[in-house]
């Protein structure tokens, strides 16, 4: 069956603030899923949206699919149980920087470590929106918020670095307004066997407006971000004349045509290599020294947790002499009273 974005829209009124970046991410998902369904042969009832607590965690109500709105920080654990219980489900998790990286940090890294086949969409607006404007684990050092009136005194997380630290198999990054790129990423994350994490740089129009502006504004975006695609050269810039090269094991921005640099000198993105070195460097790139990396940065095939659970179950069942409860009850040392 062929679906349209409309099929994935629920009858619920979307209650995010006007101008909130979450609207675009929702639209991107609703546009990506028909493609996912077609490419993977899924029908509507296989999709489940799971969330924790926070603005973005309202998303499951807006999808016309199965949905579970959990409690703060625990969406990843709920998704994990769901996937293990029924591996045929396509599980999508909407979570925020507070939900996934503060209260739910533990579940987040362990789901990645296990490589459970779920799709985590991390809405990173670098602020607590639903509680009206406190700093989050991704708020930059010095950020002034209601709970940091003199500026924060703590360093933020880079979500991608956490994914790498947990030896994740899939990491992508995008900006809320990049609908096309978002769809491309969501389709790739659905096709990835294992835990996929997509960091969505989202604007909170009320409490943290313009948080990503220095890279997301139309005029500067092309020069301050680089969209990575597997097998393509790492070229960016509005004139498509800048690129990344490796010098002394470090990335360097160069201009094609200057100092003898040709297009052939520019690195080719390999998202599928298991090696973490290059992916870590790309994830760590910060403007103004580097462009911020967008797109699928890492997409490495590996055995998933749910596959391993299934395989072990089958292996033990094939070997076992016990096939039902009655046999279990009578296994081992027993005696008769006559």
């Amino acid at each position: 069956m062929k679906y349209t974005a409309q099929d994935f829209k629920s009858n619920q009124e979307v209650r995010w603030c006007p101008g909130c970046g979450d609207h675009s991410v929702l639209a991107s998902l609703q546009r990506a899923l028909p493609q996912v369904a077609e490419d993977l042969g899924y029908s509507m009832e296989r999709f489940v949206f799971v969330s924790g607590i926070g603005c973005s965690s309202r998303l499951p109500y807006y999808m016309n699919t199965y949905g579970f709105h959990g409690i703060h920080g625990r969406a990843t654990a709920i998704s994990t149980g769901m996937k293990v219980a029924n591996p045929t489900l396509s599980i999508w998790q909407a979570t925020g920087d507070g939900d996934a990286l503060a209260i739910g940090g533990n579940h987040f890294i362990h789901a990645i470590r296990r490589n459970i086949d779920i799709n985590i969409v991390l809405f990173n607006n670098r602020i607590y929106g639903l509680t009206k404007g406190q700093y989050s684990p991704t708020s930059p050092l010095g950020k002034i918020t209601k709970t940091s009136p003199y500026g924060t005194v703590e360093h933020p997380f880079n979500p991608g670095a956490l994914v790498m630290g947990a030896r994740g198999t899939f990491f992508a990054r995008s900006i809320d307004s990049e609908l096309k790129l978002n769809q491309e990423i969501f389709v790739a994350s659905a096709k990835h066997d294992g835990c996929s994490v997509t960091e969505m740089l989202v604007n909170c129009v009320i409490y943290n407006d313009g948080s990503h502006r220095e890279i997301s504004d139309k005029e500067v975006k092309a020069d301050r971000t680089i969209v990575l695609r597997h097998g393509e050269r790492m070229i960016f810039g509005k004139d498509r004349n800048k690129g990344l090269v490796l010098v002394n094991k470090e990335l360097k921005v160069v201009t094609i045509g200057e100092g003898g640099v040709t297009e052939d000198d520019i690195l080719i993105h390999d998202a599928h290599t298991a090696d973490m070195g290059m992916h870590s460097m790309l994830i760590d790139m910060k403007w103004p020294e580097y462009p911020v990396a967008l797109g699928v940065i890492r997409d490495v095939p590996d055995k998933t947790y749910d596959d391993n659970v299934r395989d072990q179950l089958e292996e033990v069942r094939a070997k076992s002499t016990i096939h039902n409860m009655e046999e279990l009850l009578h296994s081992g040392s027993t005696w008769e009273v006559k």
Partner: peptide
Amino acid sequence: LQCEDEIAGICTAIGAAYAG
């Protein structure tokens, strides 16, 4: 599933219950 903590223990179970 030996979880990362007690909370994940019950939350994975709740997810599994939803999934049947």
